[in-house]
Amino acid sequence: MRILFLGDIVGRPGRGIVFERLRQVRRDCDCDLVVANGENASGGIGVTAKAARQLLDAGIDVLTGGNHSFRHKDVAAFLETEERMLRPANYPPGAPGRGWQVYRPKDKPPYAVINLLGRVFMQAVDCPFRAADAILAELPADVRVRLVDFHAEATSEKKALAYYLDGRVSAVLGTHTHVQTADAQLLPRGTALLSDCGMTGPADSALGMDPEEVIARYLTGLPARFTVSRAAPRFEGALLDVDAATGKVVTIAAWRHPENGRRQTEESP
């Protein structure tokens, strides 16, 4: 089973490259499944229900979230009704939506996607380690392919969770920092790890934002609203081959495509 996991989709450039190229990428990579973090897809912060629906229609099988999952008010109702869109499972009880889901496609093996949020340098949420234990205790035994999107700031927390879950999930894939790491690996008990999958959005940017605006913020210390860069977008993520019978990852690699693309000419929202 070949799985493509896309790092955080950022703004109109990130959405645009998904709309224009994802279906061809799926064919070129012979992907069985595409999972993407979409929590920065609308204006670079949060995702609207409309944008989430468009991304799912464009060929993403499951859309995950993070610390900006509830930034746009209209997304709460969408989270309640759309099983293909997740938010972190370790939000306290009462948060709209679901943090994990089992999927049983007719033509593919069953799989589960789990969305968790880190706590180091992040907002106050429930423990992601204990949340993962509780979720794994509920998973049906026949669901061997298990993907974890760990949306977290600190590499140490991401690696610690991966080792904690080693042998119990197929992969722990980090999101949130928008910088693709070079540590794709298989851990001792077979779980795959990439500390951060990077960003699907404008490559020539400061984490997706206009660099000049970010520089001005650092130089002055004054609050400022950043806008999404109009630089050429690219996909970044992880490409995995998984033995569906055992849930073990055979290979994992950081993935990027293309190195360059056409420059965005329209204003980013």
Rank of each mutant, 00 (worst) to 15 (best):
T246V: 13
L187K: 05
R2K: 15
A89W: 05
S229P: 03
E267M: 13
C197S: 14
G247H: 12
H72Q: 14
T155P: 00
T251H: 14
I9A: 07
N40R: 01
E153F: 08
A52T: 00
L207H: 05
D196E: 07
S42P: 06
G43Y: 03
G99W: 04
V143F: 03
G94V: 09
E20D: 13
L116G: 10
Q264P: 00
R225S: 10
G174L: 12
A184S: 11
T251Y: 02
Q185P: 06
W100M: 00
L165N: 12
E157R: 05
G11Q: 04
D57F: 05
A203Q: 09
E80W: 01
A192C: 06
G38I: 06
I114H: 04
L56W: 08
R53H: 08
F150H: 00
A184H: 01
V125L: 02
S170T: 15
D243A: 15
E20H: 13
V102I: 15
A216L: 12
L239S: 08
S229G: 10
L79T: 05
E39Y: 00
N37P: 10
L186S: 10
A216Y: 05
T200A: 08
R119N: 06
V10D: 12
R230S: 12
P110F: 06
V172E: 03
V250N: 11
V125N: 11
V47C: 15
K108I: 02
L55M: 13
G97K: 07
R87V: 01
L55T: 03
M199D: 07
L136Y: 11
A162D: 01
K158Q: 04
G59Y: 08
L55C: 05
V75F: 13
I3W: 00
H151N: 14
I3Q: 07
Y91E: 05
L219A: 12
R26M: 00
G174M: 09
P93A: 13
P96Q: 01
E212S: 14
E236F: 07
T191C: 15
R225D: 01
F121C: 07
A192R: 08
G190A: 09
R27P: 02
R262D: 11
V75D: 01
L6N: 04
D133E: 15
S229K: 09
I9Q: 04
T81K: 14
A52S: 15
Q54W: 10
T246F: 11
I17Y: 06
F235N: 11
P233H: 04
Y163E: 08
R12A: 13
L193Q: 04
R234Y: 01
P110R: 13
V214R: 10
P128R: 13
G190E: 02
K158A: 05
A112W: 00
Q123I: 10
P13D: 09
V148R: 00
G261S: 15
R146Y: 05
Y91D: 01
W100N: 04
A160M: 10
M122V: 08
I45W: 12
S42I: 08
D126F: 08
A124Q: 14
A182E: 13
A77R: 14
G99R: 01
A152K: 04
L139F: 06
L187W: 15
L239I: 09
T191Q: 03
L116E: 09
P140W: 12
I135W: 05
I252R: 07
R21K: 15
P140A: 08
